[in-house]
């Protein structure tokens, strides 16, 4: 997306989100808040997948790691600033894991499909570990009673306060990721995904750049995970597992890869659809998600937002 149109879309979206509490009741506000947290998660995946073209099939590992670390740290008795420490620890933990994975795979020359299946395996295992290491993770049931966000005396646990916290963080992170991906960082990444050998022959350390991008992406995912458990008050193995890992891919693919805003919209819309459909038949949802995957690949490789562009192109062709 070109610069001005991205900023305009961003501003309109932000305005809409800021005005929403005046006419939406508090139940729907919390539903939207949670959806936006997953939107942040989707944007984190998009920052990596959209820029490098390399698909991470286990991004929920970082979301879930942020979530579990946040839960464990903020539930530690007598800890100062539990929310802040939890957030920082979660982000750092996920960043370190991503750095290790990147070091071994990217520096080992692994790209593309191999990376995808290793990350897929990672999420299968992460979920198993979360289930079976029950002394720490609470096993299948997970952990409950996670304290809400508090920074010193600042209580962000109310419906409206937590909603605005999420909106503010989402907006800041989106702007930051966008600035990164349109500037020097993003151009070098584009160059690397275009022709890695050529980029290396110009002096760019592709493995390092990919690893750092992966770390940023994973840390952002962990931020979303940590926020989510603080708001929901509980953490369970499904936050780290394969199902969430694939759902986030759907959100990004539906919203449009490489646009950062699109995946947020995709996350909100798809989750809304999921609630509607699951309310009359819960087992229908996986079937529909499956069909959505296939349809996206064949009909809308650029995402749902691309429909607009396509229609415009059609009109232009019709006019010419």
């Amino acid at each position: 997306m070109r610069d001005p149109s991205w900023l305009i879309a961003f501003a309109i979206g932000l305005l809409l989100l800021a005005l929403l509490p005046t006419w939406v009741d508090s139940y729907n506000l919390t539903v939207l808040r949670d959806a936006l947290i997953f939107g942040l998660f989707a944007a984190s995946l998009d920052f990596f997948w959209g820029r490098t073209g390399i698909l991470c099939f286990g991004h929920s590992v970082f979301f879930g790691l942020g979530a579990y670390i946040m839960a464990l740290v903020s539930m530690t008795p007598d800890i100062p600033l539990p929310s802040l420490l939890g957030l920082l620890a979660g982000i750092t933990g996920a960043g370190l894991l991503a750095g290790a994975v990147g070091y071994f795979l990217f520096f080992g020359g692994v790209r593309g499909s191999y990376f995808t299946i290793v990350t897929l395996a990672l999420s299968v295992i992460a979920q198993q570990v979360a289930v079976s290491w029950s002394s720490v993770t609470g096993g299948d049931t997970g952990l409950i009673g996670i304290p809400p966000l508090m920074f010193g005396g600042l209580d962000l646990s109310g419906d409206v306060a937590s909603y605005f916290t999420v909106v503010a963080l989402l907006a800041t992170v989106l702007l930051g990721l966008w600035a990164l991906s349109r500037g020097r960082w993003g151009r070098i990444l584009t160059a690397i995904s275009d022709n890695e050998m050529r980029a290396a022959a110009l002096g760019h350390n592709a493995a390092l750049r990919l690893t750092m991008t992966f770390v940023i992406s994973a840390s952002t995912a962990a931020l979303a995970g940590a926020l989510y458990v603080a708001m929901a008050g509980l953490v369970a193995p499904d936050l780290i597992g394969l199902l969430l890992a694939t759902e986030v891919i759907v959100w990004v693919a539906v919203g449009g890869r490489g646009t950062l805003i699109g995946p947020v919209v995709g996350a909100v819309l798809v989750q809304r659809a999921q609630q509607e459909i699951s309310s009359f038949n819960p087992s229908l949802w996986p079937l529909i998600i499956g069909c959505v995957f296939v349809l996206i690949v064949f009909l809308l490789p650029e995402g749902v937002l691309s429909i607009g562009t396509r229609i415009r192109a059609l009109f232009r062709r019709g006019a010419a």
Binding site: L287, I289, F293, V294, V297
Partner: peptide, 27 residues
């Protein structure tokens, strides 16, 4: 066969098929 030159497309589509097959077996 329509996705041999689109590795990511193949990953996504076969994952979709996987979900569809699982759900069909359950149905």
């Amino acid at each position: 066969r329509h996705l041999y030159d689109r590795p990511v497309g193949a990953i996504l589509a076969t994952w979709g098929i996987s979900l569809i097959l699982q759900q069909s077996l359950e149905l």
